[in-house]
Design a protein around this nucleic acid. Sequence first.
DNA 1: TTAATATGTCAAGACACGTTGAGATGTAAG
DNA 2: CTTACATCTCAACGTGTCTTGACATATTAA
Lengths: 118, 118
Amino acid sequence: MDETQALDALGALSQETRLRIVRLLVTAGPDGMAAGAIGEAMGATSSRLSFHLTHLEHAGLVQSRRDGRSIRYSAVYDALSGLIAFLMRDCCQGHPEVCTPAVAALSACACPSPEPAA
Amino acid sequence: MDETQALDALGALSQETRLRIVRLLVTAGPDGMAAGAIGEAMGATSSRLSFHLTHLEHAGLVQSRRDGRSIRYSAVYDALSGLIAFLMRDCCQGHPEVCTPAVAALSACACPSPEPAA
DNA sequence: TTAATATGTCAAGACACGTTGAGATGTAAG
DNA sequence: CTTACATCTCAACGTGTCTTGACATATTAA
């Protein structure tokens, strides 16, 4: 991920509705959710939802596919991990005190670390 | 870091000049840099630079202190690692495939991981 | 004090963003 | 074909963001 892509992703995530959509879709898994279900969860009108989903898709954070008369949206994991890696790469430039606490936060997640301590 | 703080931080970083300022200050270390030096590096006028530095300070990403007739700005490491941790926490909700690659990217940094492999 | 340096403040303008409501398009069922 | 459903597109409006230029404030030196 280069600077331009990172700026797009950061801009897309810096809006409340969009950040919540991404979080919802991450937890929804690879199958994603239909636009209608997302809109219901967000309490957003169809045009407002479409605006934000289009924005997220342009930023590469979500992808869509038609499923019957619905359109299902799902999170693009590579983009999310790419953004996190971009921030870490920058912040780690000789200053491990930035990213080391972030890695420690991983322990609080259900994620398997490369070298699990416990 | 809660959602509101994360939105502020993401919004602050989603602007080219501000993202570059943060990257510059992270590499500059704890002593930071004088506003004039930052402005020179950015090619920004004093008012434009002040606008962005104030924005970053309000978002909690940088801090300032007077040093003679200069004002030195430095990165707030806790805020940066907090943001990274926030993104990881959200993205890891049952989907380790998001944050595991990001952790792997750490190996490319000069950062000591909690359990260094090599 | 006076002058020079370093930075911040303010108002104005151009532009981008987010929301709304109406309508258009595509898809499936009767 | 007609109807209902699901979603997108478009224009319009208010609001926020970024830049610029002129000016104000704080600090140091002569």
